[in-house]
Design a protein around this nucleic acid. Structure first.
Lengths: 252, 252
DNA sequence: CGCGCCCCAATTGCATGCAATTTGATGGCG
DNA sequence: CGCCATCAAATTGCATGCAATTGGGGCGCG
């Protein structure tokens, strides 16, 4: 039993949720930067679905605050203002303090092992690309939230964590995530010891330092080709290579 | 730049958001009970849109946790388990404590007047139907959240408040909201005085008592006709009476 | 030389149609 | 009399098509 089957935030049908996951991941890994355009056609083409589905997916992501939808205009990856970023971190701190409060002293050995394994993975990824490091660091927090068995906490922590990633790509410089690994380890240790007050403090300061490292100065925008950017994500999404849409030709 | 225009949670196009608002309100006023079926056809018919749009709206509401989407099955109003209800209240407490913490001592006179006016309205509605009382009580909390100027807080507080309404209709008995009015007044007073610690405590206990009043025993289900239930909401949504869909006939 | 207008390609907004799945009812069988 | 198989109606999942809006480039005008 334990976890419930539905797990994910809501994830209506199948195709829609596949696209959402792919785009979330593309955003979290900063392959899609804030402001990047997301035309329904291109998404549909890339993921092998109709515009209807692509559109639905964009709607979901907009509800999560990752995408901005303007009437009659091309959807874009959200570009949070500095103030919104600060707000997001404030909310995140409270939510994650709640997470660790609920978890302190209640984790099974298996769960602790799972957390440690995850941080090991983060450690192992230090040599690799920033994208992976960022993703793993974020997923650590989501993993924690999942252990509360509170779907609503999972959803909110996930959303707000993704949003914070967005702001990191806007306002932060690379390599700022590495030293977080030790903080993750400290949190696990405090959770295992069951020291509620301490783990809440650790989490608070951890997030504070992430926020402070991040919220310093604005950054420019690069502009790449959407189809190229999404290629690896689409491949992974439809494990059936590219697609089945018979009609539409590639843009080139 | 001060406030931004978009305000609402995301609300893609227009028709979709109209339907979402109508359904949210129907749910919050307990006209639509947990478990109530929401066939795309009927929604489309009632609101004068195609199934595509009705479906999109259901997707949004599912993302908010108000509606449950099961593949190939009719969507239903969500039926949170007792545990989920408890979790929702836990999250809500933290979020709303954050709200009042940010607001304590920072409200303008106009804002305080607005809050008092709202509670006056709640007071005035005591004679009326439960539906209106419940809605107003919930909207008080949303109004507070809006005053933080933090879109993400507004969104989360709104969502979780709606969800809590859902659980109230499941697990609570009528008339349980009335005495909340005094607590609302006390919160306003403490906010005005700027007593951060006290207002956080007040909010905490307020929500605790709402939760405790609510989470006691399960309740049965009535079953009415969806089209009838939605009539007043649809009327208000399309201020153009019922509608233009030529084809589908009423179910009866 | 710069500024504004117009027109066309690109794109969204939405309804409709068709195939696939589920629901519920009917009838046969133990 | 109750239970399961079978079939039709209801419903979803999704692609497609068409009208409306946008944005951008080129042209004319000041």
């Amino acid at each position: 039993m334990a976890a419930r089957a539905t797990s994910k935030t809501s994830e209506s049908s199948d195709k829609v949720s596949v696209i959402c996951r792919a785009l979330r991941r593309a955003i979290i890994e900063q392959a899609l930067e804030p402001g990047a355009k997301l035309p329904e056609d291109s998404l549909g083409e890339r993921f092998g679905v109709s515009r209807t589905i692509a559109r639905h997916a964009l709607g979901q992501l907009a509800a999560e605050g990752l995408v901005e939808l303007r009437r009659n205009r091309i959807a874009v990856v959200a570009t949070p203002s500095w103030q919104e970023a600060r707000n997001a971190f404030d909310v995140r701190i409270e939510l994650e303090r709640l997470v660790v409060r609920q978890l302190a002293g209640k984790l099974t050995k298996a769960q602790i092992a799972e957390l440690n394994a995850h941080v090991d993975a983060e450690d192992g990824a230090r040599g690799g690309t920033d994208a992976v490091s960022i993703r793993l660091a974020t997923e650590f927090h989501i993993l924690l939230a999942q252990m509360t068995n509170s779907p609503i906490l999972v959803r909110y922590v996930s959303e707000v964590a993704y949003r914070c990633c967005l702001t990191l790509s806007l306002y932060s410089r690379p390599h700022s995530t590495e030293c977080a690994i030790n903080e993750h380890r400290a949190i696990i240790a405090a959770l295992a010891k069951g020291d509620e007050a301490k783990v809440m403090d650790l989490m608070h300061h951890h997030l504070d330092s992430v926020a402070n490292r991040a919220l310093v100065a604005p950054a420019p925008q690069r502009g790449r080709d959407l189809l190229d950017i999404l290629a690896p994500y689409a491949d992974e999404a439809t494990n059936d290579r590219v697609v089945k849409l018979p009609k539409v030709a590639r843009r080139g």
